[in-house]
């Protein structure tokens, strides 16, 4: 017997001639839960994936003026109430298995949007040590590991204390919490759960590019 991973109702999966090709679309959620996830469709900002009718949204125009350092972020879902609750139960409550909700969409999107670039390295956003002790896992790594591509954990994250102690020169670099543990000379795809302001992705990109990375892309579940 199978149950919806999120709401626990029993799944009824009767195969018929009309659905046998598509039935595997989301094989962990019931149709009622699956229907509540909304994919971003139609026109979007070509850099950050926000639903937007011209090429660049206002935020991204601003980033460009400040010196843009990511090539593109691609988000799959609108950040609606349902995905917000799912992500929160997954990440904050620590319900690790809920990443399965996103496996197929993440893989498909990776194939469709990024697989042309086979020399790309998958890089997760690191978690601070105290967060790791609370949750026991890094949600960004949990997503990255679902893709059929080598994952390289080349970013480190300063703890808050270390950040307070650091010198002025470092502080000038916009309080960037990330550092590089191993320079990468290849293009990078950053994986994360939510793209909100885009600051996190760009801070990571800044460090990567300072150390010789030629191009940084991002793939995120939801665009808030």
């Amino acid at each position: 017997m199978n149950f919806c991973l999120y709401c626990h109702v029993q799944l009824e999966r009767s195969l018929t001639w009309t659905n046998w090709l598509t039935v595997e679309d989301n094989d962990v959620l019931c149709s009622s839960c699956a229907d509540k996830l909304e994919r971003i469709s139609g026109e979007r900002c070509e850099v950050c994936s926000r639903a937007w009718s011209s090429a660049l949204c206002l935020d991204c125009q601003q980033w460009r003026q400040l010196g843009e350092n990511i090539e593109r972020n691609y988000s799959i879902f609108y950040y609606n109430d349902t995905i917000r609750e799912m992500i929160s139960q997954w990440k904050f409550r620590g319900d690790y298995v809920l990443r399965e909700i996103f496996r197929n969409d993440l893989k498909d999107t990776f194939e469709k949007e990024f697989a042309g670039n086979s020399s790309m390295a998958i890089v997760p956003i690191p978690l601070s040590e105290s967060r790791m002790h609370e949750r026991g896992f890094n949600q960004s790594l949990a997503l990255a590991e679902m893709l059929d591509a080598p994952v390289k954990q080349v970013l480190g994250r300063k703890s808050d204390e270390k950040q307070a102690k650091k010198n002025r020169e470092a502080r000038l670099r916009r309080n960037n919490p990330f550092f590089i543990t191993e320079p990468l000379k290849q293009a990078v795809l950053i994986i994360d759960d939510i793209y909100t302001t885009g600051t996190t992705v760009r801070q990571a990109a800044q460090q990567l590019k300072l150390h010789g990375c030629p191009a940084v892309y991002a793939l995120t579940l939801a665009r808030s």
Partner: peptide
């Protein structure tokens, strides 16, 4: 059905939860 596992980043092993 109400148990699952996660790879613990602290102990480097899988834990049931």
């Amino acid at each position: 059905q109400y148990f699952s596992e996660y790879p613990c980043g602290v102990c480097q092993q899988n834990h049931k939860y």
